[in-house]
């Protein structure tokens, strides 16, 4: 019969139309600015720099090794190394980024900077509303804009962040054990020739522990 196929098609659409009043699964759209779907845990939009502790400038994990700058496919990262050094999370003196800029308009959210970073310093954010009315200055994010706390990282990527923390903790424990062993060896050495010399050697691990906590 002519028109049978059209009627069959109309029956399908009618079923969906009527069903949208009953079943939530048939209502697939979300009224965006008012309603929001929670972002997925593995979502990635734009990189940020992780810092530990309360002070963003002192706690930045980045040591300005410039690997991400070199590997970034569209070359949107600009880093300037510092002239001086500051202690990093294990208390070792390291260079830090005096300038760290990422251009929002060039970045293509590929996550390669995160993959190549050996210091777990750069991670992907889930914030996607990055539009601005300042087309030159507003799109170039400097290190202060990019710095976000480790707590924030835990908030947006909980599983990944706890894995990273466990890994960093292990490294730190290893370094600590190494430092302790070295200190113990030094103490043993110092203890051998003269007994009073052992006292200052024993106290050396203490400041190291203090810096570890931050």
């Amino acid at each position: 019969m002519l028109g049978e196929g059209i009627l069959k098609g109309l029956a399908e659409t009618a079923k969906n139309f009527a069903g949208s009043y009953v079943s939530k699964e048939r209502l697939t759209t979300v009224q965006y600015p008012e309603e929001r779907i929670p972002t997925s845990e593995s979502a990635r939009v734009f990189p940020f720099l992780v810092y530990d502790g309360p002070d963003w400038e002192a706690g930045l994990r980045c040591v300005a090794c410039q690997i991400c700058e070199k590997e970034c496919p569209p070359k949107c990262i600009y880093i300037e190394k510092s002239k001086d050094k500051k202690p990093d999370y294990v208390g070792k003196l390291q260079i830090y980024p005096a300038r760290f800029d990422i251009d929002v308009s060039v970045c293509m959210s590929c996550q390669i900077c995160v993959e190549v970073c050996p210091f777990e310093a750069i991670k992907m954010d889930v914030e996607f509303e990055l539009s601005t009315d300042d087309r030159f200055g507003g799109l170039l994010r400097n290190r202060q804009h990019l710095a976000k706390s480790n707590e924030y990282y835990h908030q947006i990527h909980p599983t990944e962040a706890s894995e990273v923390d466990a890994r960093l903790g292990e490294e730190k424990a290893k370094l600590e054990a190494k430092a302790k062993a070295a200190a113990a060896a030094a103490a043993a050495k110092a203890a051998a020739p003269a007994a009073p010399a052992a006292k200052p050697a024993e106290s050396t691990p203490k400041p190291a522990e203090g810096t570890d906590k931050q």
């Binding site: 028109g3 098609g9 399908e12």
Partner: peptide, 13 residues
């Protein structure tokens, strides 16, 4: 659903 909607549709054919 897609086949029921389209495959035998006279206009499409």
């Amino acid at each position: 659903e897609y086949e029921a909607l389209l495959c035998t549709n006279e206009i499409l054919m």
